[in-house]
Structure formats: structure tokens, C-alpha cells
């Protein structure tokens, strides 16, 4: 069995400054770490590897520093990693990213059985790359998965959908994105670190290595453009109603009666 886990390096802080001209986040302002959701996907893959003796490959697109997350994955138990690193790949939106990742799978592991990703990355949070990639490769996919069980060539998954928990059965090969609610990642062992840096288990690939169409990668291949990035303006103001108790109660109901009514109705509804 062959599993491919897609990793991403994201800034270690929750809020980053962005470039007002390009709308891109200034990722260089913070140290890079393995995307938390991707780390859970890696853990899901490592558990399958241990249970079924699979081969686990990781792929990451990013700058040269992103090699770090591939090394960390080897330290955790991945067999090898591929870094897609080329200035031509920079500035990719989710469409161009999915195309590039699909080319990468074709180049390094065309006979894969399972592709695993985090459900969405911590820095841009679109949640689109997984489903996009499944479309590119024509694979059955399930997103926001919390439980995975493998029986022969069939995969049983549990996924959260609104208020429902769905159990799905799918044939391999397939693509899964996992939520950070499940598959708590294992810690990196000190014995793993030297192993990860001792050997040459991480390889760097360029756009040419992927035989990617230059019009489909990076800026050039991006259909979407970030028009504006802004911090949501959360403005809460306290209101003080002064006066005699009865007058206060009346004013409260006059001004906020609708909202209070809605809250009461919700409470009563829940009590039923």
C-alpha cells in the first residue's frame, strides 16, 4: 500500500501582516511550522502505515525552508519527502496548487492508494485544495474525516457534516482530508531527528521535473486573485440604560425586545 500525505509550511503565529499591494501574507515575518491540520493528516497516514505496513511519502510545495517540514515528517516516520520548489510555482491559488500537486503525485507516486491532506491550512483556511485535487485526479474524496478504517481495498470513514456524523465506504484509490479534531499527532522523538537529517530522504523537484504546463502553475495558472485582505472589524459596544427600574425595563424592551424575544423563543424551543 502506498500513502501520500501533502504537507504545508505555515507561519507559526496566528496573525500576520500582509502586503497591501499584492494581498499576499508576509509569510517571512514568522518562523515556519508544519501546518497543524496537515500534521494530523500525517498522523492518520502513520497509523495506517503501522497497521498495514504501507509506504508513506510526503509532498510539500514551498520555498527552500519548507524542506524542514519534510524532514520533520521523516523524523516522525515518513519514508521520504518531495519538496516542490521553483520560483515559477510561487503565488499559486488553490486551483494552480491542486494542478501542481496532481502533477507531483503523477511524477513521484503514480501508483498511490490513498492521498491524505489536512482539511484546511492554518494560514489561508480555504479548505479547497483537497477537493480540487480529487477533481484533478478523478478520485472519490471525503473531507473533514475523523475516523479511518481500512479493510482490503475498502476504506470506511466517518466525517462530520453540519450536525451529522456520516459513515461512508469508499474504494481505493481515494482522497481524504482530515480534521484536527482527530488523529492527535505524536511527538517527534530525539532518535528520529538524527535519522531525518542523516540520510538523503528528501528530494527537491522543479516545475520542469513535474512536466507541468507553465500556464497552469504559480501566478500564471491562478484563476483567483486576492483583491483585498483585512482584519474583521469586531465592534461591540456596551449600552447603559439609566433611570427608574420600570422606565429602564420599558426602554430595554422597546430597544431590544425583538432580540430578547428571539433568545427566549430559542430557549423555549430547546426546552421542548
Amino acid at each position: 500500500m502506498k500513502i501520500v500525505v501533502f504537507l504545508k509550511q505555515v507561519p507559526a503565529v496566528s496573525e500576520l501582516p500582509w502586503d497591501k499591494k499584492t494581498g499576499q501574507l508576509k509569510r517571512e515575518a514568522a518562523a515556519g511550522v508544519m501546518d497543524p491540520a496537515a500534521k494530523h493528516a500525517l498522523e492518520a497516514g502513520l497509523r495506517l502505515k503501522e497497521a498495514h505496513g504501507a509506504k508513506l511519502i510526503t509532498i510539500c510545495m514551498g520555498p527552500p525552508e519548507a524542506e524542514e517540514v519534510l524532514r520533520e515528517a521523516v523524523a516522525l516516520g515518513a519514508d521520504r519527502g518531495f519538496l516542490l520548489c521553483d520560483p515559477r510555482l510561487a503565488g499559486a491559488d488553490t486551483l494552480a496548487t491542486s494542478y501542481t500537486l496532481a502533477r507531483a503525485v503523477g511524477a513521484v507516486c503514480p501508483d498511490f492508494d490513498l492521498l491524505l491532506l489536512g482539511c484546511h491550512s492554518a494560514d489561508s483556511e480555504t479548505g479547497q485544495v483537497g477537493p480540487h485535487l480529487a477533481e484533478e485526479l478523478g478520485l472519490p474524496a471525503a473531507a473533514y474525516v475523523e475516523k479511518l478504517e481500512l479493510a482490503g481495498r475498502k476504506l470506511m470513514v466517518e466525517r462530520v457534516s453540519d450536525e451529522w456524523l456520516e459513515t461512508l465506504e469508499m474504494d481505493l484509490p481515494a482522497l481524504i482530508t482530515v480534521t484536527p479534531r482527530a488523529f492527535a499527532p505524536r511527538p517527534v522523538s530525539m532518535t528520529g531527528v538524527e535519522q531525518a537529517f542523516g540520510g538523503g530522504e528528501v528530494f527537491v523537484l522543479s516545475a520542469a521535473d513535474l512536466r507541468a504546463d507553465s500556464g497552469h502553475v504559480g501566478w500564471a495558472g491562478s484563476a483567483g486573485q486576492v483583491v483585498r485582505v483585512y482584519a474583521p472589524n469586531i465592534d461591540k459596544k456596551g449600552v447603559l440604560i439609566e433611570g427608574a427600574p420600570k422606565a429602564c425595563a420599558r426602554e430595554l424592551l422597546d430597544r431590544f425586545g425583538d432580540r430578547i424575544g428571539a433568545l427566549l423563543a430559542k430557549d423555549l424551543g430547546e426546552a421542548d
Binding site: V33, E68, R71, A75, P187, M190, F197
Partner: peptide
């Protein structure tokens, strides 16, 4: 170097999480 960053990350994550 990259290795030292990974070592630091691993030790920090363990220490903050478990200790």
C-alpha cells in the same frame, strides 16, 4: 541550521504540551 530548528521545535512542543 534546519536540524537545530527541528530539534528545538520537537523539544518545545513536548515540553509545553507534557511538562
Amino acid at each position: 541550521c534546519m536540524k537545530h530548528k527541528v530539534v528545538r521545535g520537537a523539544a518545545r512542543e513536548f515540553a509545553e504540551g507534557e511538562l
